[in-house]
Simulated scan of single mutants.
Amino acid sequence: MTAGNASFMTEFILVGLTDLPYLQLPLFCLFLLMYVVTVLGNLCLITLTGLNSHLHTPMYFFLFNLSFIDLCYSSVFTPKMLTNFISKNIISYGGCMTQLYFLCFFGISEAYVLTSMAYDCYVAICNPLLYNVVMSPKVCSSLMLGSYLMAFSDATAHTGCMLRLTFCDANTINHYVCDILPLLQLSCTSTYVNELVVFIVAGISVIVSSVTIFVSYGFILSSILRISSPEGKSKAFSTCSSHIVAVSLFFGSGAFMYLKPSSAGSMDEGKISSVFYTNMVPLMNPFIYSLRNKDIKCAVRKTLGKKQFRSETVSSV
Rank of each mutant, 00 (worst) to 15 (best):
Y217P: 07
M117S: 12
L20W: 04
V139T: 14
S228V: 13
V193N: 05
M150V: 13
A157P: 05
S234Y: 11
V247H: 07
S274Y: 11
L45M: 14
K271S: 06
N65C: 09
E11A: 15
G41F: 04
C121S: 13
M9C: 14
G270H: 11
F237H: 08
I69N: 02
L186A: 11
G265N: 05
Y93A: 07
G50D: 05
F106A: 00
V133T: 15
Y101D: 04
V123A: 01
N65D: 03
V317H: 14
T189W: 00
D70V: 03
F102I: 00
T212Y: 02
S116H: 06
T47S: 04
S238C: 08
D169F: 06
S147F: 00
I204T: 10
F309A: 14
F287C: 15
M144E: 06
I108M: 07
Y277G: 04
V123P: 01
M1S: 15
F12C: 11
L20P: 00
L186P: 11
L291A: 11
A124R: 10
S290R: 12
P58G: 08
P282Q: 04
T2W: 07
M81V: 02
H54Y: 05
L143S: 07
F219I: 00
Y277V: 04
S253Q: 08
D179N: 13
S53V: 04
L291D: 06
F152D: 07
P58W: 00
M257P: 01
F214E: 04
A299P: 12
V39L: 09
Y22D: 08
I108K: 07
S116E: 09
S142L: 14
P26F: 10
E195Y: 07
D169M: 06
S67H: 07
K260Y: 14
L225Y: 05
L103T: 06
L45K: 01
D70N: 15
M267S: 02
T278V: 06
L304H: 08
Y289N: 14
A264C: 10
G107H: 01
